[in-house]
Amino acid sequence: MSGPDDVAALAAAVGLDPPVYRRADVERQVGVPHADMVRWWRAMGFAEVPEDEVAFGRDDVRMATDLASLLASGRVDDLDVLRLARVLGSSFSRIAEAQVSLLEDVDDEGGGADGVGSEGTDPGRSLEDAELLELLETSLVYVWRRHLVAALGRRLRVEAADEALRADIADPDTTTEARHEDHGTSATTVGFVDIAGFSRLSKRLDVEELGDIVDRFEAGALDVVAEHDGRVVKFIGDAVMYVAPDLEAGVRIGLDLQERAKGSDVPLELHCGVAHGPTITMGGDVFGPTVNLASRLTDVARRGTAVIPRECAHELDDRPDLLVKPVRRPYDLKGIGRTRLATVARRPEERDAPASRRRDRRDRRAG
């Protein structure tokens, strides 16, 4: 598809009103300053639109009107809007690219004997499949709602833990050690797992093989993190960043991922670093010194282990299936300084135990 007429056709196919306005037309209708419109548009990750181009429709007017009304109410400020716009833009850009790839695959399957239609692969043809388009839309809303429920549940659990901590502090019989166990409820367990030697793999494997490895790594990470009640924060190239309910869960995620990678068709060596401490969450991402520490610990990790700060090692002392070893010499971690570490691995007899048996033991501990 090409040409301005096709832009209107594409908009209609995905449920958008056709473009009939220039940016200045939208600004006049909504009463929003030009600078605000440009900032909102850029924050969502869209390419710049020439001022004289007819590129906006009634959907854009309605969205800008709703945003302007929300800001005027004082319930949120411009910074909140821009932060959410950036998260939505970056996330949905990736989702849209993945959906277009799916449409291409559908076209390939519906093509001729060679898997390609007479006009070649054209994802635009799949836009005529109303059932498929409806599934793409409803799946977005469904996954969003499920994640919203999960996020609200995590927030309620944190608030409940805060209430419990305040009650403990108010109780004169509660010891200082008990009050500060697990570093307080504002602390977060952050973990990183990356593929070691990814640059060497890139030179040795072709693009499709490399893509398959990354795909399986991401799928495994999502599976294992969910199994331990954690959350994948993001994938960064050949690494995954996640948060976990506690230090033990964070460590077990790393060890489980390494075992999966070792048993794959193309055995991979994964490195894991886990830290526990204060963080701040903004736009679904997690920031702070704890994140930096976990990332740097991954740099010095070795196969089959998770590296943690040495002062956290005592929290895993009573785990009979884990082998915790303090590292004798301190490490100079970039941006962190001299840090004492400990390694955590499964005991040799546990490495050969079936995963189901380990899950049963974990469930009994949780119960």
Rank of each mutant, 00 (worst) to 15 (best):
V274M: 08
A221H: 01
E104M: 12
L102P: 04
I308G: 09
S356G: 10
A355H: 14
T121I: 14
L165H: 13
F235W: 01
G237D: 05
V224L: 05
V251R: 10
D77R: 09
G220Q: 12
T279W: 06
H276T: 15
V251W: 07
V233N: 03
P267K: 09
T121W: 01
V76K: 07
G120H: 07
A275Y: 04
V324R: 09
D107A: 15
A196Q: 13
G3E: 03
V54I: 14
F92Q: 11
G89Q: 06
E53M: 13
P330I: 00
P4T: 07
L247W: 06
Y142L: 12
G337C: 04
R166W: 10
R39E: 15
S118A: 11
G263H: 14
L222E: 14
D36F: 13
F235A: 04
S186Y: 11
V344N: 06
R328I: 04
A24L: 11
L293N: 02
V149G: 02
A98N: 07
E134Q: 08
R358H: 04
E48C: 00
R125K: 12
D352M: 15
V49N: 07
K334E: 14
S264A: 15
V149A: 15
A355T: 13
I336H: 04
T305R: 14
A13T: 01
A98H: 13
F198C: 03
T121H: 05
Q29Y: 07
A12M: 05
I195E: 10
H271A: 14
E48T: 13
L103H: 03
V274F: 07
P18E: 12
S101W: 04
L270G: 09
S90G: 09
E315K: 07
G191M: 08
V344W: 07
R22N: 10
R359K: 14
I308P: 10
G74W: 05
D318K: 00
R216T: 08
W41M: 02
A226K: 11
F217Y: 11
T189H: 08
V307M: 15
R310Y: 12
L322D: 11
E159K: 14
L82C: 07
V291L: 07
V286Q: 06
H180S: 12
R359Q: 09
V49M: 02
H147M: 12
A294Y: 05
I336G: 03
L247N: 05
A160E: 14
V158S: 12
D215Q: 13
P354F: 01
E128W: 09
A8R: 13
S264L: 06
F56A: 06
R364I: 00
V240Q: 04
G337F: 09
D363T: 05
G273M: 09
D285W: 05
M1D: 01
L132C: 03
V26D: 02
T339K: 00
I169S: 01
V207L: 12
A24G: 10
A355C: 04
R231L: 14
T343P: 08
A47C: 01
L152R: 10
F192S: 04
R146I: 03
A167S: 14
T305A: 15
G15D: 03
V190R: 02
L165M: 13
A12Y: 00
R200H: 10
E248F: 06
I308A: 04
D105Q: 11
P33G: 08
L322V: 09
R357A: 15
V225E: 02
R319D: 15
L156D: 12
V7D: 12
D129E: 09
D25S: 05
Y21G: 01
